[in-house]
């Protein structure tokens, strides 16, 4: 290449090469994303604004269990943030579930985008157990999910399917419904 003299090469080596010699910092991951911090905040609010039947807990102080199904977009920050909180005298714990795992013992089941092709299967596994299903995929509520995150104009908004929740014995408070757009199932479950 013309004009690629030794002087230029030296300058470029200084500009780019110095950087190459520096140690690589920590890798950025999605847990840094504001979107998932907001979603984590929502998950905490769901626990506050949804009523579970007493049978969903083994005892009066048993924790709320939030299951994360599929690729975990939250990282450690969800556990860290929730561990400092309690609702109705119950603490909150996070459980990671691999694809296909049964959501036994969970109160909230967050279904990661990675599972979007298995939504129907997952719903049939959950059945009518009192588990609040939370998704982040298109038409999740219409497929029978209870709460769904959508991003509208750069903000995380909610879709709620209260009929699906009550079919599982859960009651979504009016306050949460007021903050959501109500959707219905495509076909009755």
């Amino acid at each position: 290449m013309p004009r690629w003299g030794p002087g230029l090469r030296l300058v470029l080596l200084c500009l780019f090469g110095v950087a190459l010699a520096r140690p690589t910092g920590q890798a950025a991951d999605t847990s840094d994303s504001v979107e998932y911090k907001v979603k984590a905040g929502y998950l905490f609010n769901f626990v506050k604004f949804v009523e579970w039947p007493a049978t969903a807990f083994t005892n009066a102080t048993a924790p709320y269990v939030i299951g994360i199904l599929g690729a975990d977009p939250f990282g450690p920050m969800l556990e860290e943030a929730l561990s400092q909180q309690s609702v109705n005298g119950r603490s909150l714990t996070v459980r990671h579930l691999n694809a296909g795992a049964a959501p036994d013992g969970c109160h909230v089941l967050f279904i990661s985008r990675s599972e979007r092709d298995r939504i129907t299967e997952i719903f049939s596994t959950v059945g009518s157990r009192p588990i609040l299903t939370v998704g982040e995929t298109e038409r999740f509520g219409q497929a029978g999910g209870m709460l769904n995150f959508t991003v509208v104009k750069g903000q995380v908004k909610l879709e709620a399917n209260p009929a699906a929740a009550s079919a599982s014995g859960l009651r979504i408070s009016s306050k949460l419904l007021a903050a959501s757009r109500t959707v219905g199932s495509d076909s009755p479950r």
């Binding site: 979107e35 907001v38 905040g41 929502y42 750069g154 903000q155 909610l158």
Partner: peptide, 8 residues
């Protein structure tokens, strides 16, 4: 929460 801009 609904008013936080998350788009990055």
């Amino acid at each position: 929460l609904g008013s936080v801009k998350v788009t990055s």
